[in-house]
Design a protein around this nucleic acid. Structure first.
Length: 453
RNA sequence: GUGACUAUAGUUUAGCGGUAAAACAUCGGCUUGUGGUGCCGAGGUCAAGGGUUCGACUCCCUUUAGUCACCCCA
C-alpha cells in the first residue's frame, strides 16, 4: 500500500507539547493569580462574533480588520441550509482581538448598572491571517483585561502596574514599559491635522508606506521604523506637547502614580497604537532584545468606544497581553520556572491474566489515594515493564505475578536500589503511601541541604 | 501581500554527479519472573514534480512547506 500523505497543521498554528506546556501552565497560573488578586473577575467570551463588531470598533481601515481577519459567510458554508436574506447576519469573524467582545458583552449584559469600576479579564485564542514569523502566529492566546466606568488616572496606573506585576512574577526583567498620550476628542483631531500639515510638506522624504499612512492614519508615521523617515519624524510636532491641558494633567497623574508604585517606564512620544479607538493613555510593554516582534503587551484608554457602540457613555481602559510571546520570552531568555512535581510515583507490573485484573484494580485504588500510578497494559514481560517503570522515573514498582495472584500478595520494589519486600495485598496501599511520603520527605531534605551548601 | 534563505531517519546534523552516514530518541533481541550500563538489530521513494546527464540526494526550473525581514501587531 502506498504511504498516504499525512495532514499537517495550518500555517501559523502550533501544537503545544508537554515540554512547553509546563511554561504555559506557569504563565497562565501567574496571570490568573495576579489578575484575581487585583480585583478582576474572570469571564469567557465567544471566539467568533459578527464581522460588523470589528468594523465598528477596531476600525475597517486598520490592517487587523482590513486584511487579516478570518471572516466567513455562513450562508455559503459547505452544507449550510441557513440562507438568510440579510447578508450582515451571515458574515462572522474569528476575533482578531478581544476588546470588541468585551465592549459588546458590557453593553449586551447591561453592565452599566454594575457597581463601578467593573474589572474583567479573560484568556483566550485570537486569530489573524498574516504571515507568521518569530513570536507571531495566526492563532495566538491573549490575556485581555478591561476596566469600565472610571476615568481617574489612578486606574490607568494601576492597570499598567498589574501588567508589570505579571512580568515581575515571571522574573522577566529585561522588559520596558512605554507610555504616551494621544489626546482626547478635543485635541486628537488638532494633532492629526498638525501632523498631516507637517508631513505633507515633506512627503517626498517619506517611505512608500508612510505616504499611504498620511491618508489613512497619519499618527502611525511617528511609529515608522524605516531609516528614511527617521530624520523627518524627528522634526515632527510631538503629541504630548500639543495635547490639551486636561489630557496633559491626566498623563502627568498617571506617571506620578506609576512612580509612586515603583513601576519604571519610558515616556515614548512616538508611541501610537494601531487601533482606531484609543485616546489619551496608550502603553506597550516590549522585550529589550532586538527581535522585531517584541511587543508583549499593549493597551490604552478608549473612553468613547462604548457610546460609539450604542451603549451608555462610559470611560474604559484595557490591555492585551500575549501569552505565546511571554512563553517564548521565558524560553529564549532561559528563565527558570518552578519544577512541576514528579509525575509517576508508582508503577504497576503484572504477569498473567489473573494478575492483570488485580493490578488494574489496585492501580485505580492507588490513584484515588492521590498516588500517581503508571501501568503498561500492553507489555507482558517483566523486563519490558520494568524498563517502562524506569523511563518514567517511578519511585517504586509493584510486581504482581501468577504466584502473587494466588497468594494474595504483591512485591514492592524500590527502584533506587532494587530492594524488594513482599506484602499482603490488603496492606499494599497503606504501605505504599507510607513509603512514597517518606521518600518525598527525604528528597526535600536532601534538596534543602544541597541548597544551604 | 513583498523580499531573502532553507528543506537528508522521530530530533539535531554530516555527506558526495556513481543509488545514504553519525549522535540522541523509539521499538525489538541478548534463553527461565527483575529496569538503569553494555552489545546486536529494525526503520529514509534524501519535501513533491519536471529538466540536464550514461547516471541526480548532489546541478537547473516549478510547486509546497519552514525560517527570517518588511508590513502590522500580542
Amino acid at each position: 500500500m502506498p504511504k498516504l500523505q499525512p495532514i499537517n497543521k495550518l500555517k501559523g498554528f502550533k501544537d503545544v507539547l508537554p515540554e512547553d506546556y509546563v511554561y504555559w501552565n506557569h504563565v497562565l497560573a501567574v496571570a490568573d493569580e495576579v489578575m484575581l488578586s487585583g480585583g478582576f473577575d474572570r469571564i469567557d467570551l465567544p471566539t467568533m462574533e459578527k464581522e460588523d463588531l470589528y468594523n465598528r470598533t477596531t476600525g475597517e481601515e486598520t490592517d487587523v480588520v482590513g486584511k487579516e481577519m478570518y471572516t466567513f459567510d455562513t450562508s455559503r458554508m459547505i452544507g449550510s441550509k441557513d440562507k438568510k436574506k440579510d447578508k450582515d447576519e451571515n458574515i462572522v469573524a474569528l476575533r482578531p482581538e478581544i476588546t470588541p467582545s468585551m465592549v459588546r458583552a458590557y453593553i449586551e449584559n447591561g453592565m452599566q448598572t454594575w457597581p463601578k469600576p467593573i474589572s474583567l479579564f479573560t484568556i483566550g485564542k485570537c486569530y489573524r491571517h498574516e504571515n507568521p514569523q518569530g513570536g507571531r502566529y495566526r492563532e495566538f492566546t491573549q490575556l485581555d483585561a478591561e476596566v469600565f466606568g472610571e476615568e481617574d488616572a489612578a486606574i490607568d496606573a494601576s492597570l499598567i502596574s498589574l501588567v508589570w506585576d505579571i512580568f515581575q512574577r515571571l522574573k522577566m526583567n529585561d522588559i520596558e514599559v512605554h507610555i504616551n498620550s494621544i489626546g482626547c476628542t478635543e485635541c486628537k483631531p488638532r494633532i492629526k491635522k498638525m501632523l498631516v500639515d507637517y508631513f505633507k510638506k515633506k512627503q517626498s522624504k517619506l517611505c512608500e508606506d508612510c505616504k499611504k499612512r498620511l491618508k489613512k492614519n497619519p499618527l502611525r508615521i511617528l511609529d515608522c521604523k524605516n531609516e528614511r523617515c527617521q530624520s523627518t519624524i524627528a522634526g515632527a510636532p510631538v503629541t504630548i506637547d500639543n495635547i490639551c491641558e486636561e489630557c496633559k494633567k491626566h498623563l502627568m497623574s498617571v506617571l506620578e502614580y506609576l512612580d509612586e508604585m515603583g513601576v519604571s517606564y519610558n515616556l515614548t512620544p512616538n508611541l501610537v497604537r494601531g487601533l482606531d479607538y484609543y485616546n489619551r493613555t496608550v502603553f506597550e510593554v516590549t522585550g529589550k532584545d532586538d527581535r522585531r516582534q517584541n511587543a508583549l503587551a499593549g493597551g490604552g484608554r478608549y473612553d468613547y468606544l462604548i457610546e460609539q457602540m450604542g451603549g451608555e457613555p462610559s470611560p474604559a481602559i484595557g490591555f492585551g497581553l500575549g501569552i505565546d510571546r511571554t512563553v517564548d520570552f521565558l524560553k529564549n531568555n532561559n528563565i527558570r520556572i518552578p519544577k512541576p512535581k514528579s509525575k509517576v510515583n508508582i508503577f504497576m507490573i503484572q504477569l498473567g491474566e489473573d494478575a492483570k485484573k488485580i493490578a488494574l484494580k489496585k492501580t485505580r485504588e492507588l490513584r484515588k489515594m492521590d498516588l500517581s500510578t503508571g501501568i503498561a497494559i500492553g507489555k507482558d514481560t517483566i523486563k519490558s515493564q520494568l524498563r517502562a517503570a524506569d523511563k518514567v522515573n517511578a519511585l517504586f514498582s509493584v510486581i504482581i505475578g501468577q504466584r502473587e495472584a494466588v497468594t494474595n500478595s504483591a512485591i514492592i520494589r524500590d527502584m533506587r536500589d532494587g530492594v524488594q519486600e513482599t506484602v499482603e495485598l490488603e496492606d499494599l496501599n497503606g504501605r505504599l503511601l507510607n513509603m512514597v511520603e517518606e521518600r518525598i520527605k527525604e528528597e526535600e531534605e536532601y534538596k534543602k541541604k544541597a541548597k544551604s551548601k
